[in-house]
Structure formats: C-alpha cells, structure tokens
Nucleic acid binder design. Structure first.
Lengths: 248, 248
DNA sequence: GCACGTATTTGACGTAGATCAAGCAAGAAT
DNA sequence: ATTCTTGCTTGATCTACGTCAAATACGTGC
C-alpha cells in the first residue's frame, strides 16, 4: 500500500485523482473548474481522528493516500468497523449535517476535500455529479450487505479469507498489477483493526492467519506482506460463490 | 402488522402511498402525473419469491402492504437477511440491471411498481426524485451499518432487544400510535426469519425471547404479539447509547 | 549493543451460542 | 374427532471463539 504521495490513481487523471474516480468522470470543463474552486487538501497523522461521530461535518471529499476507517463504538468499548477507506474512496454524506461514525486515520492520510455547501449547490446544477453520488452510495450499500453476510454467518477462517480476498482485489484494481500468477499485497490494517473489521478478537485473527499459512493458502513475509499463490483457493476458503469478477 | 389493504400510510397521501413516502414529497402535479402513467400494482403470495439474485429487474417500487425480505444465501444454505421491507419501503436499484439479492414475500405483499426505464428517465428530468433517491439510499446505508454493529459485536440478548426496539420504532412511526405508555406491536417475522436477521439460530432466538419475558422486559400474548412496558429498559438491553429519536 | 514500547503469536482454559433431539400448541385437512 | 403440518419451546451436549496470560519479534532511541 505504498501510495505515499501518489499524485495519480489512474492513467487518465490530472492533478486531482478524485476528479473522475470518486466524483465525476463526465464533467464538463467548466464543472471541473467549479470543483477546483471549492477544493482543498488536508493531511492527518496516523492515529488521529478525522471526525467524531456527531460532529458537524462541513466537507465531503476523498482519500488521496493513506488508509482511514469508519467505526462505531458501544459504551463499554466494543467497536465495529463499518467502513474501510482506501485511496480514491469517498467520504461524506451530501445532505446530512452530522457525521454518523468516527472516521480515523490509521496511517498518515491525505484527503482531497470540497466545502459541503457549495458542493451541494453544484450537485443541484450538475446531474452528472448527483448521479455519480447515487451510484457510489449504492456501491457502498452493496459492500455493506456483503459485509453483513460475513459478520452474521461466516466462520473465523472464512472471515479472514474473505478479508484477504477483498484487499487483494482492491489492491489489484488500484495498482493495475499483472493479474496472472501469485497475488502480492500488504495488509493495510493491524491485527486489532482487522478484528474490528471482522467482528473477531485480535487473537483469533492471528490464529486464523497462522492456520491459513500453515495450510498453504497464503504465504507471509514479515507480518504484513502477503502472497497468495492461488486466488481461487482463497475464494473457496472465503465461502464466496463467485469469483467476483476480478478483472471486470 | 395488519395493514392488509391499507390504501394510505400517512394522513396526507392520495391513492398511492409511495408518492411522497418513498419517492417524492415535493413533486409538481405534472411530475406526479408522469409517475402515475408508469405505475402499476403487483401482488405476491406469502412465501413466494419476488426476485432472485441475479435476475434482470425491470422495475423499482415500494411495498404497499405486507412484508418482504432481502437475503443472501451461501452454497451450503447459510442465509443472512440484509434488508427488511415494511410498508412504504423502497425496492430497486436505479441504474443497476440485475438484482443483487433474493427478495421474498414473507406475507402476502402488494407492491406499487414503476417500470424502470421510464422511471430512470424521469429521474434525469426531476432533481427532486434523484435527490430523494440518494437520501433513501443513505438511510439504507445507515441502517446497514447499525446492523453491522449488531451482527459483529452484540450478544444474542442484545440482538433480540435491538430487533424488538427497531420493530417497535418502525411500527410506532407507521401507525402514529400514542407514544406514551406501553408499546404494543406484532412481530413481523417467524423465529427463523428473526434468526436470519440477527445472525443466530432460531433456538437461540426463542430462548432469548423467553429470557426477556421472564425478566419482565417484554410481555407476550401468543407467539407474535409483544407488549413493551418500558421502552427505555428495552433500549438499555439493546446496548444502544441513544434513544434514537423515537419521536423525532 | 541495550532498554523500552508496540505488534504479534501462542498456550491454557472458559463460555456463549450452535447442534441435536424431544415435545408442545394451534390451525388445516381428512 | 384425529391426523398432519408448521411454528415454537425447551433440554442436553458440543465446539468455535473469547478471555486471560505469557512469550516473542521488531523496531527506535539512547
């Protein structure tokens, strides 16, 4: 995940990666101009909170580099991750005033933000953007529902395998790697954060990763660097009934 | 939940309840006219499938009466509910061709449908509708994320209490009941369907309902009719940290 | 090199909830 | 009336995962 200062996440983009990734692939030049005018960058240190649940949120935007998480916490400290934000992912809820979840930078994060009010005004005028937002929200809803199946019905081993395949897939689409042969990627989260993602404890996460390694489903170099010799095997372990259109 | 043939879900509505509940509270008369032209009703028998995951879906619409569920099923039969559709709830994914989940009528269901193509064309012309759709999708996303906390981190007892409070809340807002005093409602699902909602087995659901009854948190008349003498007590049991704006 | 803090692994043990297996209640069919 | 069916409850076990605790690995600064 060493995107560090990656200025560009796709071949075709200009200086701001989100222009088409997250917000608008089909905007007219004058619309892009408007977007540029209300755009600014912010950086957050690893471990810092970008927003607290309930805070007034005066921007929307997307992640340029680094990793952030959306989490919910109960009074007694139990926490569940409900969103994982990798580079190019969108943050914010047009039309909503407050943040619904804690947003935390788990690595150093660069965000590309738009002031919310003018962004919403732009939305009204440009159906492109409104349409794209709906599409993105539907994608997130689909992801949330897959996630619900994982949380509600999968075993610990299946959860880990699912997580690895999700990360591998996102990593591959992000980096346009050669899709043949072994998949190689770095885990973007600590064992504890993975546990919060999967509804497990960090010990169980660690044990299941060890088990998958022992069984030859994955190889590990260090703690974070993962090699998947056979992606189909991993998908089997995940209990997924489709290959998910890796190359779609 | 005996809405049976309820022609109207709010005080102000006309013959089609979804006009403002689900699609548009602020449409102009000519826009409503257009909606009327592409509108039709369908009924489904209890237990029948409205759509299978992967099927081409040529309509969007909303539930007029009855109860339907969205579910995902793994190859070995484990199933997880990912959506519960009560009267006034919207179904369908504008801009998507296929259904992503199985949609099943758990009681007799009446749906008010719009043909998808013309509905999407209407969306382009009427920002009201597009905006309302985004809002509804964001609501669903919020619900999904609450649900994820429930599935990932709550105990069986908390899951049941959460479910009861969700149903009580929805029922109250649907029926505009007196909010003071004991809450009274019917469970819209079998124990098995509740189990699929909560990521439990039906036996555990049954046991925990019995336990809540024994502890005086709820009373039962028959199997489905529930009385909640103290809603705050129920919310405590659910592990929720807010009252959720019952009367908001 | 050495002390210190954080991330991770591994082990021993306990428990919440699953599984397997009977019963029971109430409506529908004969 | 009596059998069936479907939904629900309850009991007896089993086990996957959580909990508690200790050891190891990997920096990072001195």
């Amino acid at each position: 995940m060493n995107q560090s200062s990656a200025p560009c996440l796709t071949q075709e983009c200009g200086d701001c990666p989100i222009r088409h990734r997250a917000v608008c692939a089909r905007c007219e030049p004058d619309e892009l101009q408007l977007l540029d005018e209300i755009k600014y960058y912010r950086t957050y240190e690893a471990g810092s909170h970008i927003i607290w649940a309930g805070d007034r949120m005066d921007f929307v935007g997307s992640v340029v580099s680094g990793i952030a998480t959306l989490t919910q916490t109960m009074e007694d400290g139990r926490t569940q991750m409900v969103g994982l934000l990798l580079p190019s992912d969108f943050v914010g809820r047009p039309g909503r005033d407050g943040a619904a979840y804690d947003v935390t930078a788990t690595t150093d994060v660069v965000m590309c933000c738009f002031r919310k009010k003018p962004f919403e005004q732009l939305m009204v005028r440009t159906p492109h953007v409104a349409h794209r937002l709906l599409e993105m929200t539907l994608d997130e809803l689909d992801a949330a529902r897959e996630w619900m199946l994982l949380l509600g019905r999968k075993t610990a081993r299946e959860k880990i395998a699912s997580f690895l395949s999700i990360i591998a897939r996102r990593d591959a689409s992000l980096n346009l790697r050669a899709a043949k042969g072994a998949l190689v990627f770095d885990l973007p989260l600590t064992r504890e954060a993975m546990a919060d993602y999967l509804g497990l404890t960090l010990e169980t996460v660690s044990r299941q990763i060890s088990a998958l390694r022992k069984d030859g489903v994955i190889e590990l170099e260090g703690k974070r660097h993962v090699i998947v010799p056979d992606f189909d095997r991993l998908l089997e372990e995940a209990g997924d009934d489709s290959d998910g259109g890796m190359l779609a």
